[in-house]
Amino acid sequence: MTKVSEVLRVTQPGLLATLQDFGRYGYQALGITHGGPMDERAFLWANRLLGNTYDCAQIEITLGHFKATFTRDCLFVVTGADFPLTLAGQPIKAWRVSQARAGDELTIASHGKALRCYLAVAGGFSATPVYGSVATVLRDRLGGLRGEGAPLIAGDRLSAPELMAQTLESRRPSSRLNFAVPQEPELAVVASGQWAQFARTTREQFVQQSYQVSARQDRMGIRLEGEQALTDVPRQMISEPLPLGAIQVPADGQPIVMMNDHQTLGGYPKIATLTWLSRSLLAQLPAGRRVRFRWQTLAEAQRELRQAYRFFSVVRKPSR
């Protein structure tokens, strides 16, 4: 067994810093939601850059303003929002593995252009899983450092496995890859749920107009405001299970995207579901930014998800 020891002490958590692994799968039948990283792509990259398995726990930091001190030497990386970073007073780069020494302070500042970054250490942060996962879900009081769904607070001490022969290989993604979130991203969606019950003109309107990301957003869902409300919305239905990324349209005609902490059942009609990459893009958009939707075939969306899972070695096992 690898020895687990303290690696990091949080001194300033910022607005919201939570422990997240890949998420809690297999318990939705009990009403227990996924949790997990809102920007799954940034999360998976962080683990990949460090040579971790895909589901190693990291800290999801919302809007920066985060400070922590390393209490032993380790390799770490910050991915996601490209906030200004310093280690022991020196600027460092996001998306690039760095070597921390015991006593080094890491600071993550902020800018208004993106929402979330991921702090990962080699071996991943350790915590006791609740329903198979350490993912923090505040509403359900599950996961996190102490298992009761609390966000990280100043003074929290995090541990990680001590890995043998940690060397800085300066792993970084190929410079050909572009992680910048476009100013007005086009979010690919597949037709899903009650799509066929929406009028043809409504489905056209859905992809023709642009939407503003509203301030009414959290880890459960993100409300969007279209230039014009969608009309001819099908009526509310008997509650049915909601997949991650589903776009519900309530009677007011303004879409709500179901994100990682979404309720497991919902009764509003669904017009579409975001693809894997689009979900990660939307997770980074502050209130006020505009987006558009674009239809994608299911085959394309499946190809994208398959490629991502293969690239990051994501293994989904049946839950029973």
Binding site: Y25, G26, E240, P241, L242, L305, R306
Partner: peptide, 16 residues
Amino acid sequence: LEVVPSYHSLLLYYDV
């Protein structure tokens, strides 16, 4: 991978 039942519907997650 996972089956989520509700009143008159089930959501089936499968391994892509």
